[in-house]
Write a protein that binds this DNA or RNA. Structure first.
Lengths: 226, 226
DNA sequence: GCATATTTGTCCGTATGTATA
DNA sequence: CTATACATACGGACAAATATG
């Protein structure tokens, strides 16, 4: 436990530009999303403040930011914990994805967004060829971000960014990332081709089925307790 | 259980004991949304901390929360200011509304949600009859919240709550709330009737036109500088 | 169930940096 | 350019809640 916190030392160098609280939040966010801090784990004020060499007050501001992003959970007089998602949370996240991504595929996707989609698909295929399933996951996420960007809305982009950050909390408690990401590489390509052909009326139900399957797969494999 | 009382269920989350920072954030949020603090206005740490009798550290935690909700803007070493929305922001907010509310009307709206919609419409009509345009605005907002609730997603509910809070920033810099809210009372009723009849394929374009008009009206009347 | 240690919640004083009149 | 006001950040203090033996 002490060793886990000690590893944070490496992030100490990144402090130096914007407000300290925001930079601390950035560091912690990265750590949570990469699975270094695990769902359910408590983040001790004193320990982290000491290692990052910031005051407890500043750290608490950072905690507030991450709490609002749903990555941390505040329990009064108990402290902050990395959020642990329930199966219901997963279902809700997919509900939101259907709404936001569904709206995107119903539009005529601009050429710029198509370019990003193509690159994401190529990246995923390349990673898959090299058995790099972590890389496939990252590329797939980029694919869906590019998809949402077709809406042309900064706020939807931001909402998707946060949604995917939450989803990572789920990914990290699962072993076997291949099972999770491999099936969707070719479906991403298929979806891309529908969009390139401007066949929105087919893309929408295709995406629905896609997300249904992804949700089912995730729920089935997901055990919130560890 | 009484249906009117059922609406209160949504406020249940606000009951639990909370930290001072969260209660301060609640107070400030209310003040901003009621127009007491005006867009562009600076919120002085020292002055507010003194009046609310909390420490500046605690107040800063509250500021972080509201900043993340887009109601306050942080300028490094300058302080926090009530967010001032641009015309582009307004357009983006309506983009998001089309996505979230559009998804709702495409569904079969559950009876429970229909009940809330009916009550909101009735409330708006009653307020309009009494020339209470502020009340009409509140009722209309409740209508759209009930609409989004048809998605059955806590996260979309929360997103809508925040979106409407941002929109209030715009409403408050406009004089003549009647112009803003009156036209939509009967359109809300019309939309409700389409939903009650289960005519989703008509409700969707009706809502689109509705939001287009509302956005146009708002953009036209809105001058970000005061 | 009790006594004790630990941790959070909150406040204060202060030093430093930054923007602006 | 200087002066002033204010935000930023720190560290210490203590009460209150919670965990621990």
């Amino acid at each position: 436990m002490d060793n886990v916190v000690a590893d944070l030392q490496h992030d100490r160098s990144r402090l130096g530009r914007t407000s300290t609280a925001e930079r601390v939040a950035d560091i912690l966010r990265d750590r949570i999303m990469e699975g270094f801090f695990k769902p359910g784990q408590q983040l001790s004020e004193e320990a982290i403040a000491k290692v990052l060499e910031v005051s407890r007050n500043t750290l608490r501001e950072a905690f507030r930011l991450l709490g609002h992003e749903q990555l941390l959970e505040h329990r009064l007089n108990r402290g902050v914990f990395v959020r642990k998602l329930s199966a219901d949370d997963v279902r809700d996240l997919y509900r939101v994805r259907r709404v936001i991504e569904g709206a995107a595929v119903r539009r005529k996707v601009p050429e710029e967004a198509l370019g990003r989609l193509r690159r994401a698909v190529a990246e995923a295929e390349q990673a898959a060829a090299g058995d790099d399933w972590q890389g496939v996951g990252t590329a797939n996420i980029r694919f869906h971000q590019a998809l949402v960007a077709a809406n042309g809305s900064p706020r939807l982009d931001e909402a998707m960014r946060q949604l995917l950050a939450e989803l990572r909390l789920v990914f990290h408690v699962m072993e076997n990332p291949r099972l999770l990401h491999e099936p969707f590489v070719e479906r991403n390509r298929a979806l891309l081709e529908l969009l390139e052909a401007g066949r929105a009326e087919e893309a929408a139900p295709f995406l629905e089925a896609y997300l249904d399957d992804a949700e089912r797969l995730l729920i089935h494999a997901y055990d919130p307790n560890r």
